[in-house]
Simulated scan of single mutants.
Amino acid sequence: MSQPITALVIMGVAGCGKSSVSQALCHLNGATPIEGDAFHPAANIDKMSAGIPLTDEDRAGWLDSLCDELRRAVANGQRPVLTCSALKLRYRERLRSAVDGLGFVFLELTPEVAAARVADRPGHFMPKTLIDSQFAALESPTNESLVLTLNAGEMNVKQLASAARDWWCEQTVMATS
């Protein structure tokens, strides 16, 4: 018997729909949303706003904060859904070390679609100019365990959230069977 998914990370590059899908998923199954962007220190937001890609060092404290928040939510009996780009395997491994049974929903899309979506987001700190750096850093999670890959360029938010919910429920049933 495998372990059920206790928490999810909705991941992908800027513009893939992480926040929208997380909100819709939490509405569908009563999960607790954790907006990863809310945990960025001001220095990270300033860098991104200026069009400067974050380094691994910039992300280290942010990832630690996300790990702490995941642990807190699970310890409180919640089913958290974290939005986090989680672009690199080492970032995902760091998050996996925080809680057992962490699943990932990878919202995959093309650079062109990501750039168009980011350009249409008024008031967000992530500029369109950073899209290329996001794709350059992306290490696809498709061969990792407990990962669902969805085409965010072809499915709408409701379809993505429903697919994520169905997969989460299916994984939980399989683990307890």
Rank of each mutant, 00 (worst) to 15 (best):
M1L: 10
S2F: 08
S2L: 10
P4Q: 00
I5E: 14
T6D: 12
V9L: 13
M11F: 09
V13C: 14
A14S: 14
G15V: 10
G15D: 08
G15I: 03
C16Y: 13
S19E: 13
S19N: 04
S19K: 05
V21E: 04
S22V: 08
S22E: 09
A24F: 04
A24E: 12
A24C: 10
L25E: 07
H27N: 15
N29P: 01
G30A: 02
A31T: 08
T32I: 01
T32K: 15
P33H: 08
P33Y: 15
P33T: 12
E35D: 15
A38W: 03
F39A: 12
P41Y: 07
A42F: 09
N44C: 05
N44R: 00
I45T: 10
K47C: 10
M48Y: 09
M48W: 11
M48I: 05
S49I: 06
G51K: 04
I52K: 08
I52M: 06
P53W: 01
D56P: 06
E57F: 03
E57Y: 00
D58W: 04
L63Q: 00
C67W: 07
C67P: 07
D68P: 00
R72V: 05
R72H: 07
R72M: 07
A73I: 02
A73K: 09
N76A: 05
N76L: 07
V81T: 13
T83C: 10
C84Q: 04
C84E: 06
S85R: 01
A86R: 11
A86S: 15
L87V: 09
K88R: 06
K88M: 04
Y91K: 03
Y91Q: 03
E93V: 02
S97V: 03
A98K: 05
V99R: 08
L102D: 07
L102A: 01
L102M: 11
G103K: 00
G103N: 01
E108R: 13
E112I: 04
A114T: 00
A114D: 06
A114P: 06
A115W: 10
A115R: 07
A116T: 12
V118Q: 01
D120A: 15
H124Q: 05
K128P: 15
K128T: 15
L130P: 00
L130W: 10
D132N: 13
D132L: 13
S133E: 13
F135C: 01
P141L: 05
P141T: 06
T142F: 07
T142L: 11
N143V: 11
E144Y: 02
E144Q: 07
L146F: 14
L148M: 02
T149R: 03
T149Q: 08
L150I: 09
L150V: 06
A152F: 00
A152D: 11
G153N: 08
E154I: 02
E154R: 10
E154N: 09
M155R: 14
V157I: 02
K158W: 07
A161W: 01
A164F: 08
A164S: 06
R165M: 09
W167R: 03
W167E: 08
W168F: 05
E170A: 15
E170Y: 11
Q171T: 01
Q171I: 07
V173M: 12
V173A: 14
V173H: 12
A175G: 14
A175P: 04
A175N: 06
